[in-house]
Design a protein around this nucleic acid. Structure first.
Length: 823
RNA sequence: GCCGAGAUGGCGGAACUGGUAGACGCACCAGACUCAAAAUCUGGCGAGGGAAACCUCGUGGGGGUUCGAUUCCCCCUCUCGGCACCA
């Protein structure tokens, strides 16, 4: 018998599968299609065990679906733009393109060693001009529709990476850059944004997709919808008024002051001469605070009185207008009505500055309405609140209190119902070179002009100079910079900002179906980015897999993009992926996140060298539930290796010659059908760990003496087919031993089970006395309830526990247990 | 602070709809094979008590519902993830 040599057989089958084109889908299949997608990797240079943990189980699922009769498309590509390439360029004096393609070449080999059924001939690399030409084309369409716009506004800027960042890329309390972990600062710049907020409402609707609750929740919170009212407040003695947003219009009679954000446009006009100095000083400080790193400083609220008064539109009462930086310029209207009696922040502010805290709502059923001055903490009631001290509205209870006030505002014409979102428009400008150029030019005469479609793509120069200035080399590359105005043909300057790389990954799953579509062809506004018929047949993605860390970034952007593309008339559906599964994270041996500095990184290449890809795959899937992630155990992999070796020897051994023993065969057959059932159910739900456990158990059953030739053959064939998605090479090699005439194991149908054969004919019944197991009885599975009760009551080992006691009750659960209640 | 997930042997984990807790694997112990080791095979393996039969305890802690709770309810502790002055 030959030894199991994974190195040889794995390389052999990988070559064979690719040469025979087994994994290239038929785009016009006569069977049901299945688009399986795993998040595309960034070509950092080395495949990490985390890539394996994400991709090998995805592959197993794709293979499982294929064996179940689907035409499966499981593509792969590279998210190839990004900052690391530029950093490498500066450090090693190599063009980012060169660095990136070298890495891709290396990672292709590593990815192939995994044995995945990737459709390599559909590979897409996002830094290829034939790819980003379409990113630019989409951008131009969005520009026409007003979905892309340029704005001068304060944005988050990372000094280390020398670029702006989207809100989603700024992390944590300390507001750190997602990439380099340095604190970001605020900077006012001209920046390109996409109107994702136009889609806020639709993005909250998950009814068309089956996504994990966790992601839906995170996206919902991120979008942050709140219902309320917006209304105008006049400034006493001024023409101007300002608008405020509130979720509690029913508390409007409790307004005792107003607060404007320091940047609010009205501050200048309404500040009185006496307050001018204090207000200016505060505004300056607030502005600096945004520039200075916003480290964890005390969160005590402070502010300054403007000297002006606002008139409560409900009753004409004058209240002071303050400025304070706890009111954000970027949310709502940048101004609030402060109702300190019913809001924690307003309360703290009011107490600090001695402002009144009048009560406007109380809990239903309150007899004595408290005096505002007596409050020790704000009165936070909503669902069970009733309005008090509120003129004609007194006595109105939630939720009609809300409606009554809003209806009054609408009738009187100073306010209306309003929905606000925390979601901000997507800032896509990056001051980096290694990204998709934004296809616009700036002309001294004509201003901003889009690059004509026929001139796409605007390509990156191959000869840019990389200096450690931190600035994008595009800014100094005359060949790139100089352009002709498409309108007046005078001299113009190209936009040097590039697009956020999340733009590339927002539509890559469509590009996979048509890699480098219309390569080299001239475009126009009427170009078609894909074959509509094939797109209709294959998209959207049936199953997407990837890490949860993208919940409010990529996973939000790509839903948004699909909706935009649908509105551009390019797609006939509005969600990119019907089902999503988020795998967990593989941790180091020390239960900590893997990192070079901790020295707990596991190198997959070494493991493949030592154990073979099949063993690595099997172990990764056996570790635990896929969505939970698990720590790596260097010894644990031995278990997977032993199991595969055992399967190897089991199949390589000569089949038994002697006839089977009926009793043994019955047991083995039952175990076989139970295994098929269990593995089928588990695979369908990504429960690879228990599927593998079931196969291990079955292999233990196959050790029994007395299994006849045909049952052994049937058992091994079933086992190989069930194991094929997990250990594709080993099973392929062994399949050629058992059934070479049928071709590849991966082309075999998934085994089916006979439910009648999974049933046990004898069961173990636990017999309890007062809930404690005292005996276990082997009885026929179909034994009647009464007989079961009788047998249980008579069981000899139970008698000492029944002696001298009265049987009060007997609970019989057929097939499970008998519980005798005595006292 | 708010929202979400979780806590089971030495370790990773399993357990249907409330019904025998610890499947499967790792580690460990003993035995077989071997001159020996590795590999492989066989058996054992939650804790405590007992010569044994067995008994008691045991799924983060406390309480509750139930004949019966890892599973349901209430309170608490800890861990992880997300958000964070969002009016």
């Amino acid at each position: 018998m030959q030894d199991y040599q994974p190195g040889e057989i794995e390389a052999k089958w990988q070559r064979h599968w690719e040469q025979t084109g087994q994994f290239t889908p038929d785009l016009n299949p006569d069977r049901k299609k299945f688009y399986m997608l795993t998040m595309l990797p960034y070509p950092s240079g080395d495949l990490h065990i985390g890539h394996w943990y994400a991709m090998a189980p995805s592959d197993a699922y794709a293979r499982f679906k294929a064996m179940q009769g689907h035409e499966v498309f499981f593509p792969i590509g590279f998210d190839a733009f990004g900052l690391p390439a530029e950093n490498a360029a500066i450090k090693h004096n190599i063009h980012p393109k060169e660095w990136t393609y070298q890495n891709i070449e290396r990672m292709r080999g590593q990815l192939r060693s995994m044995g995945n059924r990737f459709a390599w001939d559909h590979e897409v690399i996002s830094c290829d001009p034939d790819y980003y030409k379409w990113s630019q084309w989409f951008f131009l369409r969005m520009l026409e529709k007003g979905l892309a716009y340029r704005e001068h506004a304060p944005v988050d800027f990372c000094n280390h990476c020398q670029t702006t960042l989207a809100r989603e890329q700024v992390w944590g309390d300390e507001r750190l850059c997602e990439r380099c972990n340095n604190p970001v600062v605020k900077k006012a710049l001209n920046q390109w944004k996409l109107r994702i907020t136009d889609y806020a409402e639709e993005l909250l609707d998950f009814s068309q997709i089956e996504w994990p609750e966790k992601v839906r929740l995170m996206q919902t919170n991120w979008i942050g919808r709140s219902e309320g009212a917006e209304f105008a407040i006049a400034v006493q003695g001024h023409e101007q008024s300002f608008r405020v947003f509130t979720t509690r219009p029913d508390t409007v009679f409790g307004m005792s002051f107003c607060v404007l954000a320091p940047e609010h446009e009205l501050v200048e006009a309404i500040t009185t001469p006496e307050q001018r100095e204090a207000v200016d000083a505060y505004r300056e400080l607030a502005a600096r605070k945004e520039e200075i790193e916003r480290t964890a400083e005390g969160k005590e609220k402070d502010g300054v009185f403007t000297g002006a008064y606002a008139l409560n539109p409900m009753n004409g009462q004058a209240v002071p207008i303050w400025i304070a930086d706890y009111v954000l310029a970027s949310y709502g209207t940048g101004a609030i009505m402060a109702v300190p009696a019913h809001d924690e922040r307003d309360f703290a502010f009011a107490r600090k500055y001695g402002l009144p805290t009048p009560v406007a709502v109380v809990e239903v059923g309150t007899h004595d309405v408290p005096e505002g001055s007596e409050l020790e903490e704000p009165l936070l009631v909503k669902e069970n609140s009733v309005m008090v001290n509120s003129d004609a509205f007194t006595g109105k209870a939630w939720p009609s209190s809300f409606d009554a006030v809003v209806e009054h505002m609408e009738a009187a014409g100073f306010g209306a119902r309003q929905v606000n979102y925390r979601l901000r428009d997507w800032l896509i400008s990056r001051q980096r070179m290694w990204g998709t150029p934004i296809p616009v030019v700036y002309c001294g005469t004509c201003g901003l002009q889009p690059v004509p479609d026929a001139e796409l793509p605007v390509t990156l120069p191959d000869d840019a100079e990389f200096k450690p200035t931190g600035e994008s080399p595009l800014k100094h590359h005359q060949g790139f910079l100089k352009a002709e105005c498409p309108k007046c043909h005078g001299p113009a300057e190209r936009e040097t900002d590039t697009m956020d790389t999340f733009i590339c990954s927002s539509w890559y799953y469509y590009a996979y179906l048509f890699p480098y579509w219309q390569k080299g062809e001239t475009l126009s506004a009427d170009s078609q980015p894909w074959d509509r018929e094939v797109m209709k047949r294959w998209a959207p993605v049936d199953q997407y897999t990837g890490g949860i860390e993208h919940a409010t970034m990529h996973l939000l952007y790509f839903r948004f993009y699909t909706k935009v593309l649908a509105d551009l008339g390019l797609l006939s559906f509005r969600e990119p992926a019907l089902r999503l599964y988020n795998q967990g994270m593989i941790l180091g041996e020390d239960h900590e996140k893997m990192s070079k500095s901790r020295g707990n990184v596991v190198n997959p290449d070494e493991l493949v060298q030592r154990y073979g890809a099949d063993t690595v795959r099997t172990y990764l899937m056996f570790l635990g539930p896929w969505d939970a992630g698990a720590p790596w155990n260097p010894q644990g992999i031995e278990g997977a290796a032993r199991f595969l070796k055992a399967v190897w020897s089991l199949v390589q051994q000569p089949l038994p010659e002697a006839a089977g023993e009926a009793a043994v065969e019955k047991k083995v057959q039952r175990a076989l059908h139970q295994m098929i059932q269990k593995v089928s159910e588990d695979m369908a739900h990504f429960r690879f760990n228990t599927a593998i456990a079931a196969m291990m158990s079955f292999r233990n059953v196959l050790k029994a003496e007395g299994i006849g030739r045909s049952l052994m053959l049937e058992s091994l064939q079933a086992l190989l087919r069930l194991l094929a998605p997990i250990a594709p090479h080993l099973t392929e090699e062994l399949w050629q031993v058992l059934a070479p005439e049928t071709g590849s194991v991966h082309a075999q149908p998934w085994p089916t089970f006979d439910p009648s054969l999974t049933k046990e004919d004898e069961v173990t019944i636990a017999v309890q006395v007062n809930g404690k197991v005292r005996e276990r009885l082997e009885v026929p599975a179909d034994l009647s309830k009464d007989e079961l009760e009788q047998q249980a009551l008579q069981a000899p080992r139970l008698q000492p526990h029944l002696e001298g006691k009265t049987v009060r009750r007997v609970i019989v659960v057929p097939g499970r247990l008998v519980n005798i209640v005595v006292n």
